[in-house]
């Protein structure tokens, strides 16, 4: 979902995502009135905060989303919209992490949620290598 990582710190992150103009998603959601599905807004927050959680753990653990709380989808998001994602690490627990995520469009908050991740050992070294390289590319794209 993410197009670039604008800033990545120990406990916060800012990302950028542009909703595609054309996608099969919009064929059914909705015909003649394309809107970004709410679950994909949550996924955008999850990827934003998940990237931050990964970096906060020095890329030694893979964060898996296991909980979404207090999610609010405040405004419709249409194709071609540029979204700013922000994440803040709420708590780095043992084997888990909790973050607050939000999405903004033109400075106005359109979605927010509290996200919980369980942290697992990388199931394959190739996956870790891929994720680290991909995050590097996203940072370079900003």
């Amino acid at each position: 979902m993410l197009d670039s990582i604008v800033a990545l710190g120990d406990d916060e992150i800012e990302t950028r995502a542009i909703v595609p103009d054309d996608s099969t998603v919009f064929e059914g959601h909705f015909p003649g009135h394309p809107l970004m599905p709410g679950v994909l807004l949550i996924e955008t927050m999850a990827q934003t905060c998940g990237t931050m959680v990964m970096a906060a753990h020095s890329y030694e653990r893979l964060p898996l989303l296991v909980g979404v709380k207090d999610a609010k989808l405040r405004q419709f998001v249409a194709p071609k919209t540029e979204i700013t994602g922000r994440g803040k690490l709420e708590h780095a627990g043992s084997g888990y992490a909790v973050a607050k995520g939000e999405l903004l469009v033109e400075g106005k908050r359109v979605a927010n949620a509290q996200l919980t991740y369980t942290l697992i050992k990388w199931p394959a070294p190739e996956l870790r290598d891929f994720m680290v390289a991909h995050i590097g590319e996203l940072k370079a794209s900003s």
């Binding site: 296991v66 708590h91 084997g95």
Partner: peptide, 25 residues
């Protein structure tokens, strides 16, 4: 296990500690 994670988070916050959940498991 997922509800227990919520309990651990709330306990961590309430007592200002970090339960070594991963080590215990």
């Amino acid at each position: 296990s997922l509800d227990f994670l919520d309990v651990v988070f709330a306990v961590d916050k309430a007592f200002g500690i970090k339960i070594p959940h991963e080590k215990w498991t």
